[in-house]
């Protein structure tokens, strides 16, 4: 494992912890898209089907369990916790899951490294992760009020994606035959989706102002 991959995993972990911390301590999920969180739960559930069959390292298994556990607990908090669920912006968070799920599934059935149940679902999880942030970005655009924790959550997610790209570049040059077009293209697309958000995030940070997206 190289430093970029590790930094990517750590910022990913930090993003999830920031979100859980916000929900658990403030008992509020205002500004957080349940649609995005449910998509992430699907992403991890379909990607980590190999969790009990293929052992890579203790680190990998542990992180998989953390991402599965945290994504499902966030969904549980937002749907079922009697206080947290009241702060959910249900009327604003109207993005439809299946607009993203169905095309990703069809695409994964056409484009994959091997047409098997696990490979197709693994590819589906990559495509879905690439677009899963969209409901969250739409919600931010609509409500326009972004508290610090929600802003940090999205910033950390974007940082995670950026580190993964550096990791792929590093591995491409250091490991023979390391070529994986599907995750690279999906990952690049995903990172680009954060571009706009990053621009406003740095802008507000530089001017020491509260993060606000344009209408």
């Amino acid at each position: 494992m190289n430093i970029f991959r590790f930094a990517g995993d750590m910022t990913h972990l930090a993003s999830v912890l920031v979100l859980l911390l916000k929900i658990h301590t403030i008992k509020s999920c205002a500004g957080v898209s349940l649609k995005t969180q449910e998509l992430y739960a699907i992403v991890f559930a379909t990607r980590y089907l190999d969790i009990f069959t293929d052992f890579i390292s203790l680190y990998n298994t542990f992180m998989k369990l953390v991402f599965l556990g945290s994504s499902f607990s966030i969904v549980w908090y937002m749907r079922s916790h009697k206080i947290v669920r009241r702060s959910y912006d249900k009327d604003q968070d109207t993005f439809r899951h299946y607009f993203l799920i169905v095309p990703c599934l069809l695409l994964a059935m056409i484009i994959n490294e091997k047409f098997t149940f696990r490979e197709v679902l693994w590819t589906f999880s990559l495509f879905l992760e690439a677009v899963a942030i969209l409901p969250q970005l739409v919600l931010l655009q609509r409500t326009r009020n972004i508290d610090n924790l929600t802003g940090q959550y999205i910033f950390l997610l974007g940082a995670y994606r950026a580190f993964y790209i550096f990791n792929w570049i590093y591995r491409y040059f250091t490991e023979p035959h390391y070529v994986h077009w599907i995750p690279w293209i999906a990952g690049l697309l995903q990172t680009l989706l954060y571009g706009d958000f990053f621009y406003y995030y740095f802008h507000s940070w530089k001017n020491n102002k509260k993060l606000q997206l344009p209408a």
Binding site: R5, D9, H12, R47, L49, D50, T53, D54, I56, N60, M63, K64, F67, E113, K114, T116, F117, R118, E119, W122, Y164, N167, P183
Partner: peptide, 10 residues
Amino acid sequence: FETSLDHDEL
């Protein structure tokens, strides 16, 4: 399940 390709990233 068939053996999967090597997916060592998260």
